[in-house]
Design a binder for these strands. Structure first.
Lengths: 181, 181
DNA sequence: CCATATTTTCATTAAATACTGAAAGTACGA
DNA sequence: TCGTACTTTCAGTATTTAATGAAAATATGG
């Protein structure tokens, strides 16, 4: 172990590392608050700020996590479509890279949440509405009114999100800014 | 224990109870997927479909949960602004009722999530950007570009949500429907 | 095929989160 | 100011969720 001279470059590299670590940690915490596994969010953060694709071993090393953990969460990210696996010709191991375009990321997350959470929730609400449909007591009518209102709202939200996600970034961003006056 | 005759009314009451239970259970599961404590979501569901305000004891009884659990989650819901506590004159105990207007509920949730999660996330991103700001390596510039893109996007989203939430339901709903063509 | 590199699975363990219930605290009316 | 009704707190426990690491499965090149 040679002691390196403290050059400008080494100081800067350390600063960058600190910033990257902070970003990975915080992105994990943010994901956590939104119901996303912390490690999954951290891997996503790491891949977002890494220009080249990484192997499972590199992810393990960077985040100090086990192979099983890295593997499971990488697969989960691929399942969401936020990460792609790439194969380099002549190499046996798999590399992973994140979708870096923020608008595309947003669309992927919205589409998946719609599919996995909003749609099922709407179906459940419809089922509840059906079950209480014929009943005529005041209690029953209050129940139906409330669940219908929720259901209508969620269907509207689902529709608006579909439209937003289908639209082109180039049209929606300036529109949003104008909308904001 | 007398055996009751199976009247039409008792059948209907049972049907309604089943529908209500289903709703409470499923709303709990939905909340869970979005990072909200299951019991908190269940209490919220219960209060949404109950026309009158309930006491802590009634909530405990309905959901078969402990006093501590009911208390903590009711307070949390009051903290979000989704539930109000009401005092009936001449009565000592506290009653709780949910905000039932779906648009108001939506606005409350959006405002709170903005305040508790989006704003802090933006601040964290800004901090990361600042830390890597002066650095000139290719790695550093890639990092800054990515975090800036994320930050800009989140600020835009934050702005759009502010505007939506400030707007009147009466103007936004027809607008959303038109927007959807 | 065999030897080796790489990925996947999964029983076990660890960590995080949520719940209970009883005790302590508070407020109110008589 | 005492007794009672009600609320709050929190140490201990239970449940859920996530992570580890080693063994099994799979793929690849020779």
């Amino acid at each position: 172990m040679e002691k390196q001279p403290t050059t400008n470059a080494t100081v800067e590299a350390a600063q960058l590392d600190a910033a990257r670590d902070e970003f990975v940690t915080q992105w994990g915490a943010i994901g956590n608050a939104w119901g996303i596994n912390r490690t999954m969010a951290q891997i996503h953060a790491l891949l977002m700020i890494t220009p080249n694709a990484l192997t499972t071993d590199e992810v393990m090393e960077e985040l100090k996590i086990s192979r099983g953990n890295a593997h499971t969460n990488l697969r989960e990210l691929v399942g969401w479509g936020l990460v792609r696996s790439v194969v380099r010709k002549g190499e046996r191991k798999e590399y992973f890279e994140a979708e870096k375009d923020v608008w595309k990321m947003f669309c992927i997350i919205v589409r998946e949440r719609k599919r996995r959470e909003i749609r099922p929730a709407i179906n459940v609400l419809k089922d509840c509405i059906d079950r209480a449909d014929g009943l005529k007591s005041a209690e029953a009518r209050a129940f139906t009114a409330q669940t219908k209102a929720l259901c209508d709202f969620m269907e509207m939200a689902d529709g608006v999100l579909s439209k937003v996600v289908r639209s082109e970034r180039s049209t929606i961003v300036p529109w949003a800014l104008k909308f904001l006056k």
